[in-house]
């Protein structure tokens, strides 16, 4: 049954994603790839859409995955799943557990989760990098470096370094997405 699967998988994403934004990408990737809901390329295309449309990224991803697998009801259940844990936990904290954040154990748990999320995000970036730049996704199949993708990645990284020197902050996300869309149209046209 697709409906309970969508709801429960996104419930788990909602309950275990810490650190906002990119923190939950690894969890969502795991959920959609293990069920075969999306391919890696579809997932990555949609991450870019979720980043460039308004609203929380997790809600955008849940709505899209739900809708693509099971229409409006699927979209609703996946979104409900991803939202529900945050909603219930905050209600508990705001009403009865006002001091939850001051408990030693909560902080101890979070102190272990923080480095974990950093490791997860970096591993996800590496896995996606290997599959996008080198067409390598594990044992089967040879490594085929994609010159255009590697070149574009180098350009993006150079823009980032330059921007950081110039403005002392990373370049705006939407600018980088537009730049790579433009360069994508040029580079992949031949």
């Amino acid at each position: 049954m697709i409906y309970p699967e969508l709801f429960l998988d996104f419930l788990m994403v909602g309950a275990l994603s810490f650190g906002g934004g990119f923190g939950m990408i690894s969890l969502i990737r795991d959920a959609v790839l293990s069920h075969g809901w999306l391919t890696e390329a579809e997932l990555m295309s949609f991450i870019a859409v979720a980043e460039s449309t308004p609203g929380p990224i997790a809600v955008n991803m849940a709505t899209f995955v739900g809708a693509s697998q099971a229409g409006a009801l699927g979209a609703f259940l996946a979104t409900l799943g991803v939202v529900l844990p945050a909603f219930l936990i905050i209600l508990l904290i705001a009403s009865v557990l006002k001091n939850l954040m001051k408990y030693r154990l909560t902080n101890a748990f979070l102190s272990g989760v923080r480095p974990c999320v950093v490791g997860m995000i970096l591993a996800t970036a590496l896995t996606m990098g290997l599959s996008t730049l080198l067409s390598y996704s594990g044992g089967r199949g040879p490594i085929v470096p994609d010159g255009r993708a590697i070149g574009l990645f180098a350009v993006l990284w150079a823009v980032r370094s330059g921007w950081i020197k110039w403005k002392n902050s990373a370049p705006p996300l939407i600018l980088m997405i537009l730049l790579s869309a433009l360069l994508g149209m040029l580079l992949w046209s031949a």
Binding site: A48, F153, L156, W157, L183, W188
Partner: peptide, 15 residues
């Protein structure tokens, strides 16, 4: 073609 480029950008964003 644009999305071939955008997928590279997603690797960059996550990294």
């Amino acid at each position: 073609r644009a999305f071939s480029g955008i997928r590279v950008c997603v690797v960059y964003l996550i990294a």
